[in-house]
């Protein structure tokens, strides 16, 4: 397993799969807890996405590096220790650099520890692949997660506050859709995005079918 050649083709695949084909939010539907709680504004979503990506990349790197030394009986505990380390570091870093965003995100930073996306990547990928692939996979997944959160956060902020990155878009008379900044709004928005994505998927496969029939 370790002696595989690093083909650029495979690197590219491992990188892009997290962004679209196996997107953690839209396809795997992992990490719902931070998704619901903190994607009420674009900036919060972005901060959460960045923090998660940081933890994911750091832990994937370490786990992959140590994969030969960690006995399988204690692997989960070791992963958790590694993940928790990076989460704590991310917590301090955010608190030191962007205290306002840190206050908004509150306990959800610490809760990255239990984000199943991260532990899932360690168990399913980083612990079985060489460091290069593990990091590329983590970067792809991290970007995919952050992008999905950002999409949700932007949509919810625009509807729920009438602003984007804090800049008002519609003038003072805008009536905010309060539900969008509450957790139910996260469910609704995610559902609508999934609806649109599936609809596109169906149309694509249907048109492919009709093309095959015609051929």
């Amino acid at each position: 397993m370790a002696a595989e050649a690093k083909s650029p083709d495979r690197l590219y695949q491992e990188f892009t799969k997290g962004i679209w084909k196996e997107n953690p939010i839209f396809v795997q539907v992992l990490g719902m807890c931070p998704m619901l709680a903190v994607t009420n504004t674009a900036i919060n979503a972005l901060a959460m996405g960045a923090a998660t990506a940081f933890v994911l990349i750091g832990s994937s790197f370490l786990v992959s590096l140590l994969r030969k030394f960690v006995p399988k009986e204690v692997r989960i505990s070791t992963y958790i220790v590694i993940i928790a380390t990076f989460v704590t570091a991310a917590d301090f870093l955010l608190q030191a650099t962007v205290p306002d965003i840190h206050r908004e995100l509150g306990a959800f930073i610490s809760l990255i520890v239990v984000n199943c996306l991260i532990l899932g990547r360690q168990e399913a990928f980083a612990s079985r692949n060489s460091v290069g692939y593990a990091v590329v996979d983590a970067i792809g997944m991290g970007i995919g997660f952050a992008l999905a959160l950002f999409m949700l956060g932007s949509a919810r902020e625009i509807l729920g506050f009438g602003s984007f990155f804090g800049h008002p878009l519609f003038g003072p008379n805008y009536e905010p859709w309060v539900v969008m900044i509450l957790p139910p709004g996260g469910f609704l928005m995610l559902g609508m995005i999934l609806l649109v994505m599936n609809w596109f998927q169906q149309r694509k496969s249907r048109s492919r079918e009709t093309m095959e029939k015609a051929a």
Binding site: V70, A84, T85, A89, F92, Q95, A96
Partner: peptide
């Protein structure tokens, strides 16, 4: 081996956390 592994992981983790904490504390 299990104990050593977890011990080393805990030690490294503590080291990282303490250094980040010391570095960021004044700012926080």
């Amino acid at each position: 081996r299990l104990i050593v592994t977890l011990g080393v992981a805990g030690f490294l983790s503590g080291l990282i956390i303490v250094s980040v904490y010391e570095w960021t504390r004044p700012k926080i």
